[in-house]
Each structure stands twice: as C-alpha cells, then as structure tokens.
C-alpha cells in the first residue's frame, strides 16, 4: 500500500511534465517556424510477486500470477515536424519551406538549423535571420539590386533596375535522418544530436527535400484546440493521481486507528 504513494507520485510528476510541454506549445502558438513537442510515457518495471504459471498446489497452476506495476516514466519529449500553416507576408526575403528541411545559420562559431525563414540583409549585404546570424552558405546581395526572386528550387536571382542579373546563387537546405531527435536551443534554433544523425545538404525540391516559397512564412504547427484537450486530460489524470495519495493516507489512518 505504501508503494501506491510512490506510484501515484510518478503519475503526478509525469502529468506535470506533460503540462510543461503543453504550456510551452501554447506559448509558441504564434512563433514562426515553431514545432510542437509531445511527452512520451511508458510504464515502469513490474514487480512479479507470483510468476504466471507458478504451482499453487500439486495439480493447479496460476493462470496469471501477481504482477504489480510501479508507475510511469517519461521516456522522451518528441518534436513533431508536421507542416505549419503558411502566412503570406509579401516580403521578398521571407521564405517558407514546404516539406522537409532546415535553413542553416551560423550563430557565433556554431552551426544551427531553423525552420524560421524571416530573413533580411545585414549591414554588409548578407542574408541573415531575425537574430542577425548569417544564412549558410552565405548569400551576398549587391547594393544595386532592385528585385530579388527566389524560386521553388532555391535559386536566388538579384536584378538591377535594368533587369540584368547581378547574382545568381542557390540556397541550400539541410535535412536529418531523424528530425525528432534534434536539440532545441531556443530562438527557433535546433542543433543536431546523436539521435538526429548528421545534417545532409541538398537543393530544395530534390531528394525528397521541401521546396521554397518566397514571400511566405511558416507559422507554428501548434493546434490550440488539440493542446487544450490534452491539457484537460492531463489535469484530470493529475487530479486522479493526487486522489490516490489522499486515499492511501486515509487507509493508513484507518489502520492506525484499529486499536482505539
């Protein structure tokens, strides 16, 4: 019975983690390029008190034995890379990836990846993200450029006022064997991990990579209604686990009062 206290405690801490994940998703319901997460749970090891098939007498055997579980644990918080909605911005340097892939930017000396494509130009004319970190490989736009077009395959063309091409360059994107294993480092950035595998460079629209969409941004893939439903379910489960603790407490109280 005392074990129930600890079992219920694992349930409460699991639901509390679940709520943390939901809160973070909801907080980022409007963040460009944000990918929602989900807590994955699994049951803890079982204590086998009587193994199934143990002999109960000379000619009978237990059909199922006694197995008592010890609770739940969070096994991972998985990022779900489903496509977010597109928002039209008409800003020529806003890019959305339709399908798989990430932009690579250089943050200090570290390469990080992002789905957020709200680019602009820095003081030296290089394409950079909202944080001022340059897109990799670097793309430089000359000052004389008037129009910039980027096609679905990532081909960037900067034209001057006479319509002559000043620069043509391809924006490459990157993909991972398991994007769910990427590490979120905040500010919409992801870092590869042992679970995600190495980044693979590619041209948009080839090898299963997504295509680029100029003048659009990818919104967060959080579905507010879905998160609300998960929140209600999580709250109820939390409550139920807390009731177990209360019940054990009452039962122990009863047991202590047997001798009046």
């Amino acid at each position: 019975m005392i074990k129930s206290l600890w079992t219920a405690a694992t349930g409460m801490s699991a639901q509390s983690l679940n709520m943390d994940v939901i809160a973070h998703n909801l907080a980022n319901a409007q963040t460009t390029g944000f990918k929602k997460s989900r807590a994955n749970f699994e049951d803890l090891i079982y204590q086998t008190i009587v193994p199934p098939g143990a002999e109960t007498s000379t000619d009978t055997k237990t059909a199922s034995g006694i197995q008592v579980g010890t609770g739940v644990k969070a096994v991972s918080v998985q990022k779900l890379f489903s496509q977010g909605n597109f928002v039209q911005t008409e800003n020529p340097l806003d890019l959305a990836i339709e399908g798989k892939g990430f932009f690579k930017v250089l943050r200090g000396t570290e390469e990080v990846y992002t789905r957020s494509g709200s680019f602009k130009l820095d003081a030296d004319g290089y394409l950079c993200d909202a944080e001022g970190n340059r897109l990799q490989p670097e793309v430089s736009i000359p000052r004389e450029a008037v129009t910039i077009t980027i096609d679905a395959g990532g081909k960037l063309t900067a034209l001057d006022q006479n319509g002559t091409a000043l620069v043509t360059q391809t924006i490459t994107i990157y993909d991972f064997p398991n994007p769910g294993g990427l590490i979120s480092v905040g500010k919409n950035y992801f870092k590869p991990s042992d679970a995600s595998g190495e980044a693979v460079e590619g041209t948009p629209g080839t090898d299963g990579l997504g295509t680029l969409l100029q003048g659009f941004l990818e919104n967060s893939n959080v579905n507010v209604v879905e998160e609300m439903v998960n929140m209600i379910a999580g709250q109820r489960a939390y409550e139920a686990n807390s009731k177990i603790i209360k019940t054990v407490d009452e039962m122990l109280h009863i047991a202590n009062n047997v001798k009046a």
């Binding site: 019975m1 129930s4 349930g11």
Partner: peptide
C-alpha cells in the same frame, strides 16, 4: 490499491 494506482499513473 497498488494496482489501481499503477493504472492511474499510466493514464
């Protein structure tokens, strides 16, 4: 009760 609490922990 131990069994029930394990069920609820795994909601």
């Amino acid at each position: 009760l131990e069994v029930i609490s394990n069920n609820l922990a795994n909601a």
